[in-house]
């Protein structure tokens, strides 16, 4: 029998080793797996490489993980925010490596990893300093930059509903990076609002098929109406 539902987030994250590459879903707070991140902080893994669109806001979630000194390197598109003080401080002190990636290139590199693509040519960033040192190619009258996939050991994502096979549905813009990160990591852990019996999720509404998900944890997250 397949049962990917874990009783606690502690059990779902117990084996994350030091030095792991961890994708963390979410764009701002929408889709941010805050409870899993809190659990990862308590678990203690360090020297992590983290992939997220941002570098944390205020003192919670990813910002807290960074603030706790657990992150060695971050790949993201937009670290600078009015409230990214944990990132700013460590970055300026030279204690946190940054790989800045244009947002669409970040998404496509993650997608490529999950889809088994070895690299791709994108027009984004051609002629800019973010393409410096990268292979370029002129294809059908346009200039492109070679980019490579981003693989991860773990992906921590937030979805809305799941069944024991790991099928996931999302809610509104909280979907953002969830589906592509789920496919790009060796071990994807999804925190969900609700777990349901097999067959209760309409196959037409499953966005992430269970093949991409290893572990599911139901967490009663605070969410504002409606």
């Amino acid at each position: 029998m397949i049962d990917k539902i874990f009783a606690t987030p502690e059990a779902a994250l117990a084996d994350v080793p030091d030095g792991a590459t961890v994708m963390i879903g979410g764009f701002g707070n929408a889709g941010m797996p805050s409870e899993l991140i809190d659990c990862l902080i308590a678990q203690g893994a360090k020297e992590l490489t983290v992939i997220n669109n941002n570098a944390g806001n205020a003192d919670a979630g990813l910002a807290a993980l960074i603030g706790a000194g657990r992150v060695r390197k971050i790949l993201c598109s937009f670290p600078r925010q009015a409230d990214s003080w944990h990132f700013d401080k460590l970055y300026r002190a030279g204690k946190l490596e940054l790989e800045l990636v244009p947002q669409g290139t970040l998404a496509e590199r993650i997608r490529a990893a999950g889809a088994g693509i070895g690299g791709f040519f994108t027009p984004t960033a051609f002629g800019t300093r973010l393409a410096e040192g990268k292979e370029t190619r002129h294809i059908n009258g346009r200039d492109y930059v070679l980019e490579h996939p981003i693989h991860a050991d773990y992906a921590l994502i937030k979805a809305d509903r799941a069944d024991r096979w790991g099928n996931l549905s999302y809610r509104k813009t909280a979907r953002n990076f969830g589906p592509i990160m789920a496919a790009a990591a060796k071990c994807t852990v999804a925190q969900v609002r609700e777990t349901v019996e097999l067959g209760e999720l309409d196959p037409e509404s499953v966005v992430t098929p269970g093949i991409f998900v290893k572990r599911v944890v139901r967490l009663a997250t605070l969410r504002k109406a409606p």
Binding site: R92, L100, V101, T124, F126, L130
Partner: peptide, 21 residues
């Protein structure tokens, strides 16, 4: 996306994708 100042924290977001696409 960048003022070019050496100590500025860079952030690009989706601007390069929009410009190119």
């Amino acid at each position: 996306w960048h003022t070019g100042e050496a100590d500025a924290i860079p952030a690009v977001g989706g601007a390069m994708d929009l410009a190119a696409g």
